[in-house]
């Protein structure tokens, strides 16, 4: 605006909210804004409405039933198991991605040779679709008739003489510790079959976290670190008290991006385990698909969709509020 004033020969007009720039801007965004209003918010509203009706068959006549669908969905052991699995998957996936991503970033940042090669190699898995990742890691983690006639990773262990590492992987039916809680129809704990799924997801996404952290590390001025070193700080202290705090915004962004991927994960699990064994790796996305399109329970499927929406919103909305506040402060 400063520039415009000096360049323009016209006398300054009283500031109006709807000036020419804004009209053009509004015109430019209106097609996509309209499309988003209909195809995103309109459909979300419709899904929300459907979830409150009795539309649980192919017949389109339905009545308003309030929160009945939510209650019946939450009462099933299957959905409770889904929620447990989602929490376990998200927690492990986020932690592992952040730790491995940070480690890789620090290593790549330490002025090694062939830095470009390593950087690309670590990011490359992100170029694949989760479908591909799921299929490939399914082959790797299919245990075969172990320990005598194994396949995949088990076979590799056997050939290397590390047979004791063989495991049931994606067919492991265990839940550790598997506590039973009164009133819950699922066991509390970590379903062991989820671990290989987390490994596959981390393999795919940790390179992306590395890239984010790498950008963050490069953005930290050397002067600050130098000043600390002059003051006698050890390398670990520099990392602990300067680098890590300055990377905090990156961590937050990474948590948001990874978090919303993991909370609505579908494709990886469909191709890798299909939710098996039992429902031990099934997440709400799969359940929603199955009850909607196999069992024709559209209203219950919509209820599951709304639950997923709320869960993701719980993560994303505080972030948006926070980032808006920090922007205002600047």
């Amino acid at each position: 605006m400063q520039q415009a004033k000096t360049l323009s020969a016209r006398p300054a007009r009283p500031a109006r909210w709807l000036n020419r720039d804004r009209v053009i801007a509004l015109l430019m965004i209106s097609p996509s804004a309209l499309a988003i209003a209909v195809f995103v918010y309109g459909f979300i509203a419709w899904t929300g409405y459907v979830s409150l009706t009795s539309w649980n068959s192919l017949a389109t006549t339905s009545t308003f039933v309030g929160f009945d669908n939510y209650l019946s969905v939450f009462a099933t052991g299957r959905f409770q198991t889904n929620i447990r699995n989602l929490i376990v998957f998200t927690a492990f996936f986020l932690l592992a991605c952040l730790l491995i991503g940070l480690l890789l970033a620090v290593l790549v940042d330490s002025r090694i040779r062939f830095e470009g090669f390593f950087r690309s190699a670590y990011i490359f898995p992100m170029a694949l679709s989760f479908i591909v990742t799921g299929v490939v890691w399914r082959w790797l983690f299919a245990p075969g008739n172990w320990p005598d006639d194994p396949t995949g990773i088990n076979l590799l262990f056997k050939q290397l003489g590390l047979g004791f590492f063989q495991s049931a992987w994606i067919t492991d039916t265990g839940v550790v510790p598997g506590w039973r809680v009164e009133g819950l129809r699922t066991r509390i704990g970590v379903p062991m079959a989820m671990i290989p799924v987390v490994v596959a997801a981390v393999w795919q996404m940790s390179g992306f976290v590395m890239a984010m952290y790498l950008a963050g590390l490069r953005g930290i001025p050397d002067e600050i670190k130098e000043a600390a070193r002059v003051d006698g700080a050890s390398e670990w202290q520099v990392f602990r008290t300067i680098t890590l705090p300055l990377l905090q915004p990156i961590t937050l962004s990474a948590v948001i991006i990874l978090g919303h991927i993991s909370l609505k994960i579908f494709d990886l699990i469909v191709t890798m385990t299909g939710g098996a064994p039992g429902n031990n790796t099934e997440v709400p996305g799969l359940y929603m698909y199955e009850i909607t399109f196999k069992a024709n329970k559209f209203a219950e499927g919509a209820a599951v969709a709304m639950v997923m929406l709320v869960v993701v919103a719980l993560l994303v909305v505080p972030y948006l509020i926070y980032s808006r506040q920090t922007e205002v402060e600047r």
Partner: peptide
């Protein structure tokens, strides 16, 4: 983000 998670697959 909402578009990706809302509604049916």
């Amino acid at each position: 983000i909402l578009a990706a998670c809302g509604g049916a697959p």
